[in-house]
């Protein structure tokens, strides 16, 4: 995906620029942008080190695992067909919590594991219905998979750490001003996702 996107951006820019006589500008833009990326990473490095450092304390002192327990009723609400002790539940929870706290690199592996476990759940359902649900046909997403993916994409996040770093690099008077508005926006999109999933999940499954 990114190979085509990146390639297309460069080719489009250079060809369009050539026709409009802007090749000198393109040359300096290419060199300046590369330099700028490094300067940006220096700013990012400080903010990320601070945030991940704090999150390490949060993890070691049990805040993260407490949050994991606290959202169990929500998981039960969103995934009524998922049995209490199922492995998928654990991974789904980890994925959501990691996303909320901006631990992106921890979110993806847990998310992929969750999908694997949800696939196994469908295989179990083939033998006998689990959680009052029958198996989805082979190669078809189960209701749980749809709900999980939509929730994931609605991207609930407490603090948009990297955006704050970028804003401070580009001279914002108050880089953190967007924290609460972002939270409000992400809550709205998550709410839309939750309602949509509940409606679709409530309809006769498959």
């Amino acid at each position: 995906m990114l190979n085509y996107l990146w390639g297309a951006m460069l080719l489009l820019g250079i060809i369009y620029g050539a026709f409009h006589g802007r090749l000198p500008e393109i040359t300096s833009a290419a060199i300046d942008s590369a330099k700028e990326a490094v300067a940006l990473c220096v700013t990012m490095a400080g903010v990320m080190a601070l945030w991940v450092g704090l999150m390490e304390i949060a993890q070691k002192s049990g805040i993260i695992s407490r949050a994991t327990r606290k959202i169990q009723p929500f998981i039960s609400f969103m995934f009524p067909g998922l049995p209490k002790g199922h492995r998928a539940r654990e991974y789904i929870t980890t994925n959501i919590i990691a996303n909320v706290f901006g631990l992106g690199w921890a979110a993806t592996p847990a998310g992929l594991k969750a999908m694997e476990e949800l696939k196994k759940l469908e295989e179990e359902r083939k033998r006998c219905p689990v959680g009052g649900r029958k198996a989805a046909p082979k190669g078809t997403a189960s209701n749980e998979m749809c709900t999980f993916l939509i929730l994931n994409i609605s991207s609930l996040q407490l603090i948009p750490v990297s955006i704050i770093a970028y804003r401070s690099q580009y001279g914002s008077v108050n880089p953190a001003a967007v924290i609460a508005p972002s939270l409000a926006a992400t809550l709205l999109s998550a709410a839309a996702a939750i309602v949509f999933c509940k409606v679709m999940d409530g309809r006769k499954s498959l």
């Binding site: 460069l10 820019g13 620029g17 290419a30 700028e36």
Partner: peptide, 8 residues
Amino acid sequence: GVLRASGF
């Protein structure tokens, strides 16, 4: 940067 400088 290239895309911006080209005017596209």
